[in-house]
Design a protein around this nucleic acid. Structure first.
Length: 473
RNA sequence: GCCCUCAUCGUCCAGCGGCCUAGGACAUCGGCCUUUCACGCCGGUGACCGGGGUUCGAAUCCCCGUGAGGGCGCCA
């Protein structure tokens, strides 16, 4: 049974690099019919916080990466928080075993220079402890070489003498990362460790600890890191990096996952639902090269998904997003609530023009809000065009006579009549009408927009602009 | 400094000794469509890091450089 884990430390938001690692673990677990385990590595008391843990779990859920065992749902190998595991004494006990086997020792540190060890002992150095010295447990590095096979890098060999003895228990009693991972991965029966390449050089140390316990190490796979445009590690300098950031910007979880999967992965079709990839996922389709995060491609993928999904689904995603991140848009939210069928029509034509929910909001707003604003460009156009008012007056006249405005071909003919009657070029007339209806010069198709707005709303808006436009002179 | 990893268009991926005058996608540029912007379609620019080998033949294999990234914490 395949058992893999994702083990974030709650010291910040969930980074897209972390999600990508989690995604590959998840995909592998689901593909193999195994278990995906979530473990919180909170052994750094200074930097870990409960708030970040909550956010990380929430981000993971938003990404659709569900876990089979974890701190919130438990499981047979709990607890799943290292701080809680520490309370049970397991790390201390296992470290003690190594000391008894003379594979680790108590180290008394020089208070002046904590790097310096002034005393090594296989017995608890009580007298130093009493005097307040910092005491750790260090793992002794043996002579020789350490080998392991990395699923992506191939055979790895490290000379042991490049490593110094490693602290496994800190002076505060907490285990260090390199020790806790080994103990936990073993106790949790992890079969495959898929993690970032930044852990590659740590692996031999961990292997040595496995060997000291005579435990079988799991399989290892180190996947390349995500970099920014300048090839330095992806950070806030390059733009947003947390799941929360992309969520807030109006990216769809499916699109983010799609892009992350695509990044450093070879597939036939670029646009896909990552959940369907469970069927065909293989570890060796992951590339062995660090990758640069491409914000533009992500946006393109997001636009594709935005247009692919069902309008109803888009409606609910958009609605939830507004409620979460754009609470101040009360009028938009209200219109969405009370006039769903109209909103659906608006969404349908607006999504053709945008790539993110934030862009969608801008596009959609003037359709829902009757007190829409006019952008400066339009006001300028209106002022400088001597025929603008005439175009609007003529439109009102023609539209009022029309039966209904529910057919784009008819709307086109009516508008053509307007431009003919006023003797203004179509393009010019259409832009004046467009801005009059929505306040902007960039909108969905004019005919579709009028169709969606409907006769009465269209007339009302033309009159409104005519009225307000008088003050622009 | 020592150790490890990686190296094809600006970016991601394809290529795994001859099919490569190197292919696809995003971006970019030009055109078409057209009521704006986009979508869509058509086309262009654009890369095998350098040097040595091996071989009849190398983007593909080997070595050496160089560059980039990672590690060398009582961080994870």
């Amino acid at each position: 049974m395949v058992r893999v884990r994702f083990a974030p430390s709650p010291t910040g938001y969930l980074h897209v690099g972390g999600v990508r690692t989690a995604l590959f673990n998840w995909l592998f677990a689901r593909r193999m019919g195994g278990k995906f385990i979530l473990r919180i590595e909170d052994t750094d008391l200074e930097r870990s916080s409960k708030e970040f843990e909550v956010l990380i779990l929430e981000s993971l859920k938003w990404c659709g990466l569900d876990w089979d065992e974890g701190p919130d749902i438990g499981g047979d190998f709990g607890p799943y928080r290292q701080s809680e595991r520490k309370e049970t004494g397991i790390y201390q006990n296992y470290a003690q075993k190594l000391v008894e086997a003379k594979k680790a020792y108590f180290a008394v540190h020089d208070p002046e220079d904590s790097k310096k060890v002034i005393k090594k002992a296989f017995e608890w150095p009580q007298e130093y402890f009493k005097k307040g010295y910092d005491i750790t447990i260090k793992f002794k590095i043996e002579e020789g070489e350490t080998r392991f096979n990395d699923l992506l890098k191939g055979k790895m060999t490290f000379k042991n003498d490049v490593f110094d003895d490693i602290v496994i228990i800190k002076s505060n009693g907490f285990p260090t990362y390199n020790f806790a991972v080994v103990v936990d991965d073993h106790l949790m029966k992890i079969t495959h460790v898929i993690r970032g390449e930044d852990h590659l050089s740590n692996t031999p140390k961990q292997i040595m600890i496995y060997q000291a316990f005579e435990w079988n190490p799991p399989e290892f796979m180190h996947i390349p890191l995500i970099l920014g445009k300048d090839r330095s590690p992806l950070s806030k300098r390059h733009g947003g990096t947390s799941v929360n950031y992309f969520r807030e910007q109006g990216y769809l979880n499916k699109a983010l996952m799609n892009y992350l999967a695509l990044l450093g992965w070879s597939v036939e079709e670029e646009i896909f639902d990552y959940k369907e990839k469970v069927e065909t996922f293989t570890l060796n389709s992951i590339s062995n090269k660090s990758v640069i995060f491409d914000y533009q491609k992500l946006e393109w993928i997001n636009g594709k998904h935005l247009r692919n999904i069902d309008t109803i689904e888009l409606y609910s995603i958009f609605y939830d997003w507004l409620k979460t991140f754009k609470k101040e848009e009360i009028e938009v939210i209200r219109e969405l609530d009370i006039n769903k069928s109209y909103a659906l029509k608006v969404l349908k034509i607006c999504r053709e023009k945008v790539n993110t929910l934030a862009q969608l909001l801008e596009m959609i707003k003037p359709f829902l809000v009757d007190e829409y604003e006019y952008e400066g460009k339009y006001i300028e156009k209106f002022k400088s065009d001597g025929q603008a008012a005439k175009v609007l007056e003529e439109s009102i006249k023609i539209f009022e006579k029309a039966r209904e405005l529910d057919n784009t071909d008819e709307i086109r003919k009516l508008l053509e009549n307007v431009s003919n009657n006023v003797e203004v070029k179509r393009k010019r007339a259409f832009q004046i009408v467009r801005g009059a209806l929505l306040g902007k010069l960039i909108t969905p198709g004019l005919f579709e927009s009028i169709q969606v707005l409907g006769k009465s709303r269209t007339l009302q808006r033309l009159k409104r602009t005519l009225e307000i436009g008088r003050n622009w002179k």
